[in-house]
Amino acid sequence: MPDGSYERPQQRQFNPYSENGGTILAIAGADFSVIAGDTRQSEGYSIQTRYAPKVFRLTERAVLAVNGFAADGNMFVKKVKQRLEWYRHAHAKDMPLRAIARLIQTMLYAQRFFPYYVYNILGGIEEDGTGAVYSFDPVGSYEREACRAAGAAQSLVQPFLDNQIYFKNQTPAPGTNHPTHLPLPDVLSIVIDSFTSATERHIEVGDGLEIYVVLAKGRSTQELASIGGLQELSTRAEGDRMFVIRRDLKKD
């Protein structure tokens, strides 16, 4: 008002959410699973840090990638890990992957009216030894898939994956079929290409790349031998094995 008074009290609503950029991606093979995410965390046009992990090891054979609002993401992972620990104390074994998937849906839906603003992708090895990927929306809708991208560059990466993983719009040579699962080296190349492409065209993607690889029990690690920046996370060589590959992405 001209006299300096307010017509009605000024209300500034506190917004409990933010969006912290980045992209995650997971691809399931026949007997392995690959889960990847970039490490940039941003808010608006500011890069908060060049290294904030979005991909987390849950068990010997399960990995969870979270993307969206970082505070919600970290809290959610913390709570999932806590539930898995309680499960271990109660049952003296790790929770199977499909049970973790259902647990995550329940935990997300529990917050239906104040949701975790987070897109989750769960990857790992199923009890039958197959590679699996489960993807979730923020309130717990989920499905098992062969591949999924989520986050800031989902719209850049997902159609590329449709083409390269599902062979969409490609006709097999007469008398042949497209493979239902790709070999590990091909999958790793596609993951790296996806992230370099997303980094090139999306400002919220870049800095670093973390690729988790989970191999089913008894599977050869031969194909990983020549990969640079590889680190083994599993402690026992006889069970399922887990590796992480750390690479640089462009920082601009």
Binding site: A153, S155, L156, V157, Q158, P159, F160, N163, Q164, D193, S194, S197, A198, E200, R201
Partner: peptide
């Protein structure tokens, strides 16, 4: 989407 696929 075109940017993403073309870049790849």
């Amino acid at each position: 989407k075109l940017f993403g696929v073309a870049e790849g």
